[in-house]
């Protein structure tokens, strides 16, 4: 009971102390998450939604964001389009952070030539141009959002592992980590709790958010390019823009386009904000 109270006060305190950009971006991120979470509850049939009698309607009370060239509700499609990137993005981000963090910790802990060679391989993979690689994979295999998520996850593991490895190496020389060892704390606990959880969690959260926004970005880009990503009639933010770029009305493409830009910007600002807050706490 009292614990909940304390954390409530803490949240309010943090909120007041944070910058306006962090406040705004966290609101947007919260909204997107809410959309993503309620999505499975909403049933939507893109074929039934077609109604040529209400094409290109301007935003009104019955259609808050208007309708597109086939008379489908832009607002509903926008909401349903979150599904295209939400869970794949979360899963990709989660596993990238988990595996990247683990690999980085192992490299940093092992040190010596084993650690150095794994690190070198990872850094090599990291130099691949991600977008080219993704398009290449999508031309070989039938593209699906899961494939995109998987590849994005794999593509980010090396860079996350490298950051974590550097952190583990630099922390290894810190007095307090030496003190932990000298006091007989279990090495596994030191690595997993003191280093990965306490020291790297903000960094890993930021990377998770980055991968998430990258999946959104890639999904959009591939849908826009046409043959890849989520296919019509199912909505995704990318193919909504692509479908209606020739439409006479502005809202069918402008609204999802703005949604994409705002969401990505908010995600990045939110991630940065978390990392910065963490640094302030340490000082």
């Amino acid at each position: 009971m009292s614990k909940i109270k304390v954390s409530k006060i803490k949240v309010i305190k943090i909120w007041r102390a944070s910058s306006l950009s962090f406040q705004l971006s966290s609101l947007v991120v919260f909204a997107v998450f809410l959309c993503g979470l309620v999505n499975p509850l909403i049933s939507y049939d893109p074929v039934l939604d077609v109604d040529l009698s209400r094409r290109d309607l301007a935003p009104s009370l019955s259609f808050v964001m208007g309708t597109d060239g086939q008379g489908r509700s832009v607002g509903l499609r926008l909401l349903k389009g979150v599904e295209a990137f939400f869970f794949p993005g979360l899963i990709a981000g989660f596993f990238a952070a988990l595996i990247g963090g683990g690999l980085g910790a192992i490299c940093g802990y092992l040190g010596g030539w084993v650690g150095r060679s794994i690190a070198a391989i990872l850094e090599l993979i990291d130099t691949l141009p991600r977008m080219v690689f993704l398009v290449l994979i999508c031309t070989i295999y039938p593209p699906s959002i899961l494939l995109i998520a998987m590849i994005s996850c794999l593509l980010f593991i090396p860079s996350i592992a490298t950051v974590v490895r550097r952190k583990v190496e630099s922390l290894g020389a810190e007095d307090y980590i030496l003190a932990h060892v000298a006091h007989g704390f279990h090495p596994l606990k030191i690595i997993s709790y003191h280093i990965l959880w306490l020291q790297c969690r903000a960094l890993l959260t930021r990377q998770l958010i980055f991968v998430f926004s990258y999946v959104l970005f890639i999904e959009t880009a591939l849908s826009y390019l046409g043959d890849y990503g989520v296919q019509e009639p199912y909505p995704s933010w990318g193919n909504m823009v692509a479908q209606s770029r020739i439409s006479v009305a502005a809202w069918p493409w402008a609204i999802p386009a703005v949604a994409i830009i705002v969401t990505i910007a908010a995600l990045l600002a939110f991630g940065d904000g978390i990392a910065r807050r963490d640094e302030e706490v340490k000082r």
Binding site: E174, D175, Y176, L178, A179, H180, V181, A182, H183, G184, F185, H194, L198, Q199, V281, K282
Partner: peptide, 21 residues
């Protein structure tokens, strides 16, 4: 042996405590 056999305290007390605990 670590901890129970022998342990240490260091010169810089701020840096030898975990800043996040």
């Amino acid at each position: 042996l670590w901890g129970r056999g022998a342990t240490a305290i260091f010169q810089n007390p701020r840096r030898s405590l975990d800043p996040l605990m």
